[in-house]
Amino acid sequence: MSENSTAPDAHAERHRTAPARDRGEPRFPGGPAADPAGSHHERRIRSFRPRRGRVTVGQGEALRRLWPQWGLDIDGLHRLDLGELFGDPDLPVVLEIGFGMGEATAQMAAADPGTGILAVDVHTPGQGNLLALAERDGLSNVRVANGDAIILLREMLAPAALAGLRVYFPDPWPKKRHHKRRLLQPEFVELAATRLRPGALLHCATDWEPYAEQMLEVLTASPSFDNTQPDGGYAPRPDFRPLTKFESQGLDKGHIVHDLIFRRNEA
């Protein structure tokens, strides 16, 4: 057997997993908690499934090293000072709910260093990947939050604290009996409105047609938002939202992606 036949190739090395840990040992000491809000808040129907997944060695190392500096758990027990969190009291901060593996988030952060991105997800591999991307690209304007975005909005952010809100490709919960789990409901929209400053954009995108229709109906009915489109319909994809690999694959299959961009009004 040749020497090269036993050496892992670059792909295998990149995707090898972290060594096993002893029972009871924290998965990532000092990293994201498994259930940060615990029993502090009410049990309710959630719009997300906790997804831990397989974490590569690189992602795990990023979580261990960078979480204390750039990560936070959504425990619902204290009010966040976004100026302190980002190290700049004048930095406008946009909240992104659900960032997947973080590639698009990193691209947006690199393209707009004058805006902070507070990116929320419960996907551990994605959290580690985004932290690694932020370090690699020197993105000091990214912070990663772990947990329930509803608790973050309701309990941990001050009124009018946000300069924008992005919800890209949330779980569509396609079965009718699961529609109540969709994030974009009237209650969520009005909660978000209290945390957005006047003029801030609420930007959603989905490739699930029935969910796009629901989003448009809910946002149009809200007294707190105005559609940026004069015809009251969907918006073209703005240049600042990157075309992701997932989205490109969907477009190749004939999926139609709808963007909805609404502006927080003065009401």
Rank of each mutant, 00 (worst) to 15 (best):
residue 20 A to R: 11
residue 60 G to Y: 03
residue 98 G to L: 03
residue 72 L to Q: 08
residue 29 P to G: 02
residue 186 P to E: 00
residue 89 P to Q: 13
residue 143 R to L: 03
residue 158 A to P: 08
residue 120 V to Y: 04
residue 240 F to I: 11
residue 54 R to K: 15
residue 245 K to P: 10
residue 212 A to Q: 05
residue 249 Q to C: 11
residue 88 D to S: 08
residue 229 Q to A: 15
residue 13 E to G: 13
residue 227 N to I: 07
residue 55 V to C: 08
residue 240 F to H: 15
residue 231 D to G: 09
residue 54 R to P: 04
residue 33 A to W: 02
residue 6 T to P: 01
residue 207 D to F: 03
residue 226 D to F: 06
residue 13 E to L: 14
residue 116 G to V: 02
residue 76 G to H: 06
residue 48 F to Y: 15
residue 162 L to P: 12
residue 143 R to K: 12
residue 146 N to D: 07
residue 128 G to V: 05
residue 150 I to P: 00
residue 241 R to K: 11
residue 248 S to I: 11
residue 47 S to H: 15
residue 205 A to D: 05
residue 146 N to R: 04
residue 187 E to Y: 00
residue 249 Q to A: 15
residue 69 Q to E: 13
residue 261 I to D: 00
residue 149 A to M: 06
residue 246 F to H: 13
residue 109 A to V: 01
residue 255 H to N: 12
residue 170 P to T: 07
residue 199 G to Y: 07
residue 181 R to T: 05
residue 125 P to D: 01
residue 203 H to Y: 02
residue 200 A to L: 10
residue 169 F to P: 01
residue 87 G to A: 10
residue 89 P to N: 04
residue 69 Q to Y: 02
residue 228 T to Y: 05
residue 190 E to V: 01
residue 45 I to R: 14
residue 52 R to C: 05
residue 63 L to Q: 00
residue 32 P to I: 07
residue 160 A to C: 13
residue 49 R to S: 10
residue 225 F to Y: 14
residue 40 H to K: 12
residue 68 P to W: 03
residue 192 A to K: 04
residue 107 Q to Y: 04
residue 242 P to D: 08
residue 222 S to D: 10
residue 210 P to Y: 01
residue 227 N to T: 13
residue 98 G to E: 00
residue 12 A to T: 14
residue 50 P to E: 03
residue 177 R to M: 05
residue 85 L to C: 10
residue 118 L to C: 06
residue 112 D to S: 15
residue 106 A to S: 08
residue 61 E to H: 12
residue 137 D to A: 14
residue 136 R to V: 06
residue 65 R to Q: 14
residue 52 R to Y: 09
residue 238 P to H: 08
residue 100 G to M: 00
residue 90 D to C: 13
residue 96 E to Y: 01
residue 99 F to Y: 03
residue 236 P to T: 10
residue 103 E to F: 12
residue 64 R to H: 05
residue 92 P to Y: 05
residue 116 G to C: 00
residue 19 P to Q: 01
residue 72 L to D: 03
residue 83 G to D: 10
residue 266 E to M: 11
residue 250 G to E: 06
residue 1 M to L: 07
residue 174 P to A: 02
residue 9 D to G: 14
residue 65 R to T: 15
residue 53 G to T: 06
residue 126 G to K: 07
residue 131 L to V: 03
residue 87 G to F: 09
residue 255 H to R: 12
residue 65 R to H: 15
residue 89 P to I: 00
residue 136 R to N: 12
residue 120 V to S: 04
residue 65 R to E: 10
residue 63 L to K: 04
residue 1 M to E: 03
residue 40 H to V: 12
residue 113 P to S: 11
residue 193 A to H: 09
residue 27 R to W: 11
residue 173 W to M: 06
